[in-house]
Design a protein around this nucleic acid. Structure first.
Length: 489
RNA sequence: UCCUCCUUAGCUCAGUUGGUUAGAGCACAUGACUGUUAAUCAUGGGGUCCUUGGUUCAAGUCCAAGAGGGGGAGCCA
């Protein structure tokens, strides 16, 4: 590690660097200085490459707080001002990118355990302080959304990005550890079978010169796929096909909804996780959903505590408490009918009346989760008429084995069901709901050949991240949000 | 898409009943300070008051339309 000829001259002009020897010091990620300093050797020269967060100091000594995103905390660089070129030091401002060689020492001051005493500084890229939009102080989420290309350099978005990664990894780990197989379902799809909302059209046709059929309509047979296709709104139907062969599968991919939704909980492009398990009934499905979410929450508590503590301090004082509370007790499980009775007997005044047969409104769900039970709630057995055609019909002829997992603050985080495995009932109900058999003949085939009970659900990834991070707007938990009238970056 | 609120310096915001030269904090620049922690202190520069039209002797302030944004609702994950 220590290389004799690195002790270069202490001449004042220290911008000089020799590529070959500089490359001999391997970059140390800042996380190693903060978390694994026992593996580093004091008084050895190390290299840090990072972006400057703040610079402060005086004529004799300068302090640089730098961050490389490996961890939320900054590393402190100590600069002995007289030993460095004045112009170089002046050019180092908030936002600039630097490579620093320096001696690792224990820090005499509070705030950090270690610090790096710079021996050599290379300025990779400056950031004109008059133009660089990020300051040392608070920015509103709205402003940061306008500079989504730079906001990953903030503490908040660094934390969100890291948590997103850890949750992605934890999802794959959870399923892999339980013998599930990840299935890649198509992004371009010809079916609108689920009816999960408006779809984005995919076409290579010249919009200014559309081919027409004899009756004046657009001739989709001339399009790339020879038919009309869209971006997927769900991988569920395809996941079911896989489950009827591999038993336990899940998808994790992008999903698109062209709904004109303008809320802090909706995106036009989002990521969804959809497990599908053969031989699971609705109760197994609830068990899986509850185990799954609790595993992810625990994984965040175990692996993302530095970031969670930051978010807890800056945005949501009850965040960590709430995450722990979710895992402490079983979720409440009630039927839709029971929920309606609770709401009707609550004495609470609702803007919308509660009546059996109508879908629950946000205010009703929020009352159940936040006021009545004070913990996550899973509701099942909804009226057949308000749910999708593929859900398993109950013997009562009125309800289906649907399941919604309702969470504090964010509402519905999971929607799922046991699937209808009876061919007659499924095709009959699909017909009545206006899903043409010619579009889902392949789906119906799974019921035609070797059908069996199975269940699954969909988890909105960004809604999970909302809950885990305590952020209040879904546009701030995805790097580049797509919403109506917004597809910049 | 509906309801509602907002738009003033780079950022966050104040601006009274319509009245003379539109303010503050932070950021930025200059200077001071030999261990700072969103450093501190002093000084300084910085404005299409979202756009268009209207009312008025006079509009940041009142009215109308439009654009952008926030919150709530619907659709849902």
């Amino acid at each position: 590690m220590s290389i004799p000829f690195l002790s270069y001259s202490n001449s004042k002009k220290s911008i000089i660097f020799v590529k070959n020897y500089k490359d001999m010091i391997k970059r140390t990620p800042i996380i190693d200085i903060i978390k694994n300093s026992d593996k580093l050797v004091l008084n050895e020269e190390i290299n840090i490459k990072a972006w400057v967060r703040t610079k402060r100091g005086n004529k004799g000594i300068m302090f640089l707080a730098v961050n490389d995103g490996s961890i939320i905390h900054n590393a402190q660089i100590i600069i002995d001002v007289p030993n460095f070129d004045d112009a170089l030091l002046r050019s180092i401002t908030t936002g600039s990118c630097v490579s620093v060689n320096g001696i690792l020492k224990e820090s005499p001051a509070a705030g950090q355990s270690h610090e790096i005493h710079a021996t050599e500084i290379e300025l990779y890229g400056t950031a004109d302080p008059e133009k660089y939009p990020l300051q040392k102080k608070g920015h509103s989420m709205e402003f940061l959304r306008e500079i989504a290309h730079l906001r990953p350099r903030t503490n908040t978005f660094g934390a969100v990005y890291r948590i997103r990664h850890h949750m992605t990894f934890a999802i794959h780990k959870f399923f892999n550890d339980r013998g599930f197989f990840n299935v890649h379902t198509p992004i371009i799809t010809g079916s609108d079978a689920e009816g999960a909302g408006a779809m984005f059209r995919v076409t290579t046709l010249d919009m200014n010169n559309l081919p027409k059929t004899e009756d004046g309509k657009v001739d989709n047979s001339k399009d790339f796929f020879g038919r009309m296709v869209n971006l997927t709104v769900s991988g569920q139907l395809e996941a079911e096909l896989a489950a009827m062969a591999l038993t336990q599968v899940y998808t994790f991919g992008p999903t698109f909804r062209a709904e004109n939704s303008n809320t802090p909980r909706h995106l036009a492009e989002f990521w969804m996780i959809e497990p599908e398990v053969a031989f699971n009934d609705i109760n197994d499905n609830m068990d899986l959903a509850e185990d799954f979410i609790k595993y992810l929450v625990q994984y965040a508590l175990d692996n993302c505590m530095d970031d969670l503590e930051f978010l807890n301090k800056m945005y949501d004082k009850e965040l960590i408490e709430r995450l722990k509370a979710v895992n402490a007790e079983p979720f409440v499980r009630k039927t839709y009918t029971e929920a309606v009775e609770i709401l009707q007997q609550s004495g609470q005044k609702f803007e919308y009346p509660v009546d059996w047969g109508y879908d629950l409104q946000s205010e009703h769900e929020r009352y159940l989760v936040e006021k009545h039970f004070g913990k996550p709630v899973i509701l099942t057995d909804y009226p057949k008429a308000i749910k999708a055609f593929y859900m398993k019909q109950n013997e009562d002829g009125k309800t289906v084995r649907a399941m919604d997992v309702l969470f504090p603050k964010i509402g519905e985080i999971i929607g799922g069901s046991q699937r209808e495995d009876n061919l007659e009932k499924l095709s009959q109900w699909a017909k009545e709901q206006g899903v043409p058999e010619k579009d889902i003949w392949w789906y119906l085939d799974t019921r035609r050949f070797g059908s069996g009970p199975h269940s699954g659900f969909g988890l909105g990834f960004e809604r999970l991240i909302l809950f885990i991070t305590g952020m209040s707007n879904i546009r701030d938990v995805i790097p580049f949000p797509r919403t109506p009238h917004n597809a910049e970056f």
